[in-house]
Every structure is written in structure tokens, then in C-alpha cells.
Amino acid sequence: MQKSGLQILHLYPNHMNLYGDRGNLIAIQHRALERGIPVEVVHAEPEAPISWRDVDLIFMGGGEDSHQARIAEDFLRRAPELTRALEDGVPMLAICGAYQLLGHYYRTVNGDKLPGIGFLDVTTEAGRPRAIGDVVAHTTLDITPRSLVGFENHGGRTFLGTGAVPLATVQLGQGNNGQDRTEGAMHKHAIGTYLHGSLLPKNPHLTDLLIRWAVDRDGNTDLEPIPMDLELKAHDVILSRC
């Protein structure tokens, strides 16, 4: 089935909006509109009603600890509906704090376990020092080029369970935990990652994949090709640091 317009659900834009998270939405909108696909972005703050049936793509960013604490309860309350949507193949991009919340739990420095919804088979431990810097990684997704570039800035160390597939293998930077060279995790069409930068503007091939999944969950529809020259030049600046 193919849809004519896309509805993007942006979860907690006022709370979970670290540097440049907005850039990811701008990129999706831009590359969809260039192809004549109308886009509607729906913002949902805590307690806002969400019409899950109409959602074609979900985005959620990272937030300061105090902000994350304010939305955690609401997010967990929505776990059944969100999980159902993700199981149905609705694509989601979850960055940093949102990625951690898709996992089983985040264990703080004090040993408290802050629960997530457990859709991704990952767990996160607080760590020091923060992993900060450019990242170049090689993804297993079927997209061209295979490289993903971004900027990471996270204290948490995320470890993958047996049910999780890493988004990519790190060639520059720390990635999930600085130990196993994995970066991010995926299940169905949900992608969790630590990459900011903003991620999607300079990874147009990943942007297009998300749009393709959003347009047609079975992934059978090819998108009209549009230029990605400038996008890949920005991409190559970081790639060349590897």
C-alpha cells in the first residue's frame, strides 16, 4: 500500500530537543517535499492525545536529564501503543536519550534503574567520561553509500542483547559503548542511535530510507531520485577524518 502524504509524529519537541534534533525533521520534510510528498508534522507533548493510526513516521530526540525525567512517565504509559506501531513496521528514528528509552533500562551512577519500553534489546549504563566527537560508521543497511557520519555526545554506554542488530560498525568515534565498535541498534523499522550532527541532513541516503519505509512499509516502492550532491559533500568532510 502506498500513501499520498506523510504524517510525522514528533515526540516531546519541547523537552527532547538537544542541539540539532530539529535538523532531522527539516531533512525528512525537505526530501519528501522535493518529491512532491506532502508532510504534516504532529507535535506531541506529555498527555497530548495521539492518533496512532495516522502516524507514518516517528521521531524523538535527546534531552537534558531534567527534561528527560519529565517525559519518562508519559513515554512509558504510551509503551503499548508505541510498541504496536513499531511492530507493525512504522519507522522511527530515536536519537540519544530517545534511543536509551527504547531499550530495557538506563542504570544511573547511583545504581537506580530507569526503565525504558524494551522494544530494542539494549541496556545502558551511566559512564564517564562522556563520549564526544565525530563519528564515522559502516552500516549494514542496504543503502548507498554504506557510511554514516555524525557527532556523538553521550555519557551512557549502551550494550546490545542477542535480539538487537547494530545499526553500524564504528570506524571513528566511540559508538554504543567504546568497546565492541557497534553503533546504534535496530529492530523492524525502528532505528536508535547516538549520532547527532544533525544526522539526517548529511546522511541523505538514510533520510531516503526512512521516507521509503514511511511511504510503504513493505519497502516495495522506489523513491524518485533527487540530488544529494551538497549533502554528500557535507558527509565527505567528516568521512575524510576517518
Partner: peptide, 13 residues
């Protein structure tokens, strides 16, 4: 600032 993400929060639109 080594992270240029902030450019995406500038209100060029």
C-alpha cells in the same frame, strides 16, 4: 564548538 548541529537550530526558515 566541534559539533555543528547547532546550525540546524538557527531560525533561517
Amino acid at each position: 564548538g566541534q559539533d555543528v548541529s547547532w546550525l540546524w537550530d538557527v531560525d533561517f526558515e
